[in-house]
Amino acid sequence: MTGSRTAATIDAARAEGRAALVVYLPVGYPDVDGSIAAARAAVEAGADIVELGLPYSDPGMDGAVNQEAMQAALAGGTRTADVLRAVREVAETGAPTLVMTYYNPVLRYGVDRFATDLVAAGGAGLITPDLIPDEAGEWIAAADAHDLDKVFLVAPSSTTERLHLTTAASRGFVYAASTMGVTGARASVGPRAEALVAATRAAGAERVCVGLGVSTGAQAAEVASYADGVIVGSALVRTLIRSDGDRDAALEDLRLLIGELAEGVRAGRLVR
């Protein structure tokens, strides 16, 4: 066991007195190469950890922006194998690269086979929005055998008992869903996120990152004042949705937003 590079990256950010910036981008949007270029640009612009989304036909936890991107990715022919290629090319940047995926595509690929191929591609692990530890026996066994991160989610509705269970099953970090809802930008991150982070720490979590609803530098700073990492997804995806199809302009918008968010996670320590 070599341990979690994801955890090490969060710890290094913490040593700098800041939160880590975790970015989500779906593979295959605008196309596979375009999504790889976007993720690499995000790392250059200051993202610490990358979550690559595996597009899925029934993304029950995603809001409109991510749904649209996933649907376009599937319509464009994105396959599970493309996701593994994207992992390889993004992991080359040195940033820990996780795959965020609904469970069925992994189950279909073969859980252990997916873990094997993810390791070979240089991937760090999986984030599983519709897989709770109670149902994850097969994935947990594969992740442990292959030294991969297992990022499970906690929510404002999680009981203390479930916070303990989920924390104990997680490696890398625990993903705290800031609100009761789906992915997508919101006017405010919600008052329950800070309490959830505190409760998750009390349940034994060493690293808790907050996602859902973060879209601006100011929100990133707010979350960074109490969390170990700030996860931004659909706000980034939105920069890639352009009716004029100008990819250079889209990447420039993406870099600008990442820059703003990277400043945010550094400003957060002033609040702390």
Binding site: G60, M61, Y103, P129, D130, L131, I132, D134, E135, F152, L153, V154, A155, P156, S157, S158, T159, R162, T166, A177, M180, G181
Partner: peptide, 13 residues
């Protein structure tokens, strides 16, 4: 069977 849903729904279920 089982419950392959987001954690947010577990309390309600």
């Amino acid at each position: 069977g089982g419950r392959f849903v987001p954690e947010a729904l577990i309390a309600a279920l």
